[in-house]
Structures are given as structure tokens and as C-alpha cells.
Amino acid sequence: MTLNVKVKPGSKLDQLYYDEQGLLNVRIKAPAQDGKANDYLVKYLAKQLGLPRSSVDIVSGFTNPHKRLEIEAAEEVVRVRLAAVCG
């Protein structure tokens, strides 16, 4: 499934939440330099979704806060797990 997210690197804590428009936002501690934030984002999302790291891949937005990710899991599974994590 494809997942669109907005990422804010360099945050004080890691957090997943939906904004007023319903877009998934991800705050991560990793800095936005030398691909560290992208690598951390993939690891963080995989962990939150209970998936192996290889199941999460950035498709576009490598240097942009708006990213499109490809998740190798059923859409229903991802949505249920996101609902549990985001509260």
C-alpha cells in the first residue's frame, strides 16, 4: 500500500499523529542531513507497524518533508496498526 506522510526531522521526540486535514505526520529525532532522517523514518515506521524494515520503502520525497512510502502489508493491517499507535 502507498502511504503519504509529512516528516518533521530534528524533533525532541518521535511521534505519529494525524493533522486537521487527516494527513499522517511523523516527528522524528534524527537530523535532516546525509539521509539520516530518511533511514530513521523507515526504521521507526517499520517498528511502529510491527513490520520488518524491508517492508517499508520511500518511493518519493527524499529531500522533501512530504514523502510517499510503499508499505508491503495489507492496507487494512496498516490502518488498524496506525489507529492503535496514533490513538
Rank of each mutant, 00 (worst) to 15 (best):
V56L: 07
R27C: 09
A84I: 07
P9Y: 06
S55R: 09
E72P: 01
A73S: 15
L24W: 06
V26C: 03
S60C: 07
E20L: 12
L82M: 04
D19K: 11
L49F: 00
Y18P: 01
Q15K: 13
V85C: 05
P65T: 01
D19H: 08
L23Y: 10
A37K: 06
V56K: 02
P31G: 02
A46P: 02
E72I: 05
V7L: 05
P31W: 04
V56Y: 01
N25G: 01
Q15W: 08
V56N: 13
L41N: 10
N64M: 02
D19W: 11
A46Q: 11
V5P: 00
Q15Y: 10
Q33L: 10
K8D: 06
R53D: 15
V5Q: 00
K29F: 03
A32E: 12
L23W: 11
L82W: 05
L13M: 09
I28N: 08
V59L: 14
D14T: 10
L24E: 02
K29C: 04
G22Q: 09
S11L: 05
Y40F: 13
R79F: 05
L13S: 14
L82D: 08
R81W: 02
G35P: 02
R68M: 10
A83N: 15
I58Y: 00
V80I: 13
A74H: 12
L41C: 00
I28H: 07
Q21C: 06
Q21R: 13
V5N: 03
